[in-house]
């Protein structure tokens, strides 16, 4: 059920777009109104979510320590896996965001006869998620050719590099092939691995199906049921300048666009927000310097003053002495007693 429902939802979205775009006025609705609305929801929702996170206090330093922390001078610190400086944090975040360093550490536990548990490295998830994210990035940047005029040089350069093998016409993009393979890997992983399957939810499958749907409709439009890109660019570049012209476009395009619109709307409310969230992960972006810098819990009540043990003892010394509790500073004899002794 948790696989079937998201699948049915994505198929339904495609059908809605097919039917909707064939109705009178539907082309304007699916080609102009929904995409603009979706983009607005995406931006506002994204900002809202980030602001909400920014307002959440982080009372403690909670970096995950993936290496030797800063310690005595002769103990070598792992500066990027347990950073204690701002620079170290920047390097750590860079490696995390660009190379998925924490996924690279992924291990798999296996029970052998004995019984004996062994841990081994598994890099497959790291490899395919890296491929998936980079292909997605390349594909998104490549699509700028539909939204800009003149088309910036880096988009053209990227497109040239992506089609370097010059297979077929229109030229095959390598990123398209790798992208679909990577999505299928990420999907099959959730199906075939028992433990991963157990913890997977519809919210995990839905974005996978959605993105796969976007990829398939896009691939069909480029390589198989070729569509007229000039008419499409008139619409999409028009969207970017708020003067869209709706021409005679293949319904497949509306399915593609509607799935993308859905993705944009879904984005700020789902796990896809890890795009922004990775930057705000306190377990990654905090320096492990609790022993060098005093961090105050932002929600501390300012009326409650710090109360050291010494002052605590000062306040309750007599009672503590009366209860025979050990004292750092012994109770001085009362002045009257002193006088008595002196006499």
């Amino acid at each position: 059920m948790k696989v079937l429902y998201p699948f049915v939802a994505v198929v339904a979205l495609v059908l809605i777009a097919f039917i909707g775009a064939s109705l009178p006025g539907g082309q304007y609705l699916f080609g102009v109104v929904f995409p603009i609305l979706a983009f607005a929801i995406f931006l506002v929702g994204f900002i809202n979510r980030i602001m909400n996170w920014g307002k959440s206090p982080v009372p403690f330093r909670i970096p995950t320590t993936c290496g030797q922390a800063n310690s005595l001078p002769w103990i070598k610190q792992n500066k990027f896996d347990c950073p204690s400086t701002g620079f170290g944090v920047i390097v750590r975040m860079f490696l995390e965001i660009v190379l998925f360093r924490s996924l690279f550490r992924n291990t798999k536990a296996e029970m052998l006869d004995g019984p004996k548990i062994v841990y081994g490295a598994t890099k497959w998830l790291w490899l395919f998620s890296l491929l998936f994210h980079y292909c997605f990035f390349v594909i998104v940047v490549r699509h700028l050719r539909f939204f800009t005029d003149p088309i910036p040089g880096f988009v053209q350069a990227l497109e040239f590099g992506d089609g370097l093998l010059q297979v077929g016409t229109p030229v095959l993009y390598q990123s398209d092939v790798v992208f679909v393979i990577a999505i299928l890997f990420l999907f099959l992983r959730r199906i075939l691995l028992r433990q991963v399957n157990y913890i997977s939810l519809p919210a995990d499958y839905f974005p996978l199906f959605l993105i796969l749907g976007i990829a398939i409709t896009g691939i069909l439009m480029r390589y198989f049921i070729r569509v007229d890109v000039v008419v499409i660019k008139e619409l999409t570049a028009g969207l970017a300048s708020f003067s869209p012209k709706v021409g005679d476009i293949n319904p497949l395009f509306y399915a593609h666009l509607f799935l993308v619109s859905t993705l944009l709307v879904y984005f700020p409310f789902s796990k896809l927000m890890h795009l922004g969230g990775i930057f705000l992960s306190p377990t990654r972006n905090l320096a492990n310097n609790s022993r060098m810098v005093r961090h105050e819990n932002p929600w501390n009540n300012p009326n409650i003053k710090p109360h050291s043990y010494a002052s605590y003892e000062d306040e309750f010394r007599e009672f503590m002495a009366g209860a025979d509790l050990p004292l750092d500073k012994p109770l001085e004899p009362a002045p009257e007693e002193k006088e008595e002794k002196a006499e």
Partner: peptide, 10 residues
Amino acid sequence: PIWSGNAGTT
């Protein structure tokens, strides 16, 4: 795309 250019000419 919104601030960089225009819709271009058909």
